Simulated assay, not measured.
Amino acid sequence: MDNFIKQIKTQARRKVKAQNRGNHIWSGFGMFGLIGWSIALPVVLGALLGIWIDKRYPGSHSWTLILLVAGLCIGCWNAARWVMKEHKNISDDEAEDE
């Protein structure tokens, strides 16, 4: 019974802490948008740079495709790094509560 009460107190503290920080459903949607932009921006910039290079210096290979894929890799790496950082922060907060 004491373990059950301890779990409820821990959950209540987490809820109050999240409310004080302003974590709610809209901040979660904002994170999805942030991740999307962190991937989309390098992809678009890579494609635009590739188009510019292909127009200025035509060659046998497509710089547009190469830089688009490079932008995708950079964007995915950036998003994964950000998600891991947020996961670590959440894990640290949970460990602090216990």
Rank of each mutant, 00 (worst) to 15 (best):
V83P: 02
M31W: 09
S38Q: 05
R14E: 12
N78D: 10
A47E: 05
I74K: 04
I8C: 03
V69E: 00
H24D: 14
N20T: 10
W63H: 12
L72D: 01
G50R: 05
S62K: 01
T64W: 08
I39C: 06
S62E: 05
L45V: 08
C73Y: 07
F32H: 02
W52E: 06
E96K: 12
S62H: 06
C76M: 08
G28P: 03
P58E: 02
P58N: 08
I90W: 09
S62A: 11
D54K: 04
Q19I: 03
H24S: 14
A79S: 10
K15H: 09
W26T: 06
F4C: 01
N23K: 06
M31V: 04
K88M: 07
E96R: 09
M31L: 13
N78V: 11
N3A: 14
D97A: 14
D92A: 09
I25H: 09
I53S: 03
D97S: 07
L48G: 12
R56Q: 12
N3I: 11
D93W: 01
I90L: 14
V16H: 02
R21L: 07
A70L: 15
T64Y: 11
I66D: 07
I25F: 14
I53L: 13
N20R: 13
G30W: 04
K55V: 02
E98H: 15
G46C: 03
N23V: 15
A80N: 10
A95K: 15
A12D: 12
L67H: 04
I35H: 03
P42K: 04
I35E: 04
S38E: 03
H87K: 08
Q11H: 11
W37I: 12
A95M: 10
W63G: 00
A18P: 04
P42Y: 05
S38Y: 04
I90K: 07
W26K: 11
G30M: 10
V69G: 00
G46N: 06
G33E: 05
E86M: 08
W52M: 13
G30A: 14
N78L: 09
I25D: 02
M31K: 10
E98A: 13
I39G: 00
N20V: 11
F29T: 08
R13P: 02
G36V: 01
W26N: 10
G50K: 10
I53V: 15
G33I: 14
V44G: 07
G28E: 11
W82S: 01
V83K: 03
I90H: 09
G50T: 05
L72F: 12
R14T: 08
I8A: 13
H87A: 15
K88T: 11
L49F: 12
L41H: 02
F29H: 08
C76W: 02
W63R: 00
K85H: 06
L65C: 00
A40C: 11
F29S: 12
L34R: 03
S38F: 02
D54E: 03
I25K: 08
N3K: 15
G33W: 09
A80K: 07
D93R: 09
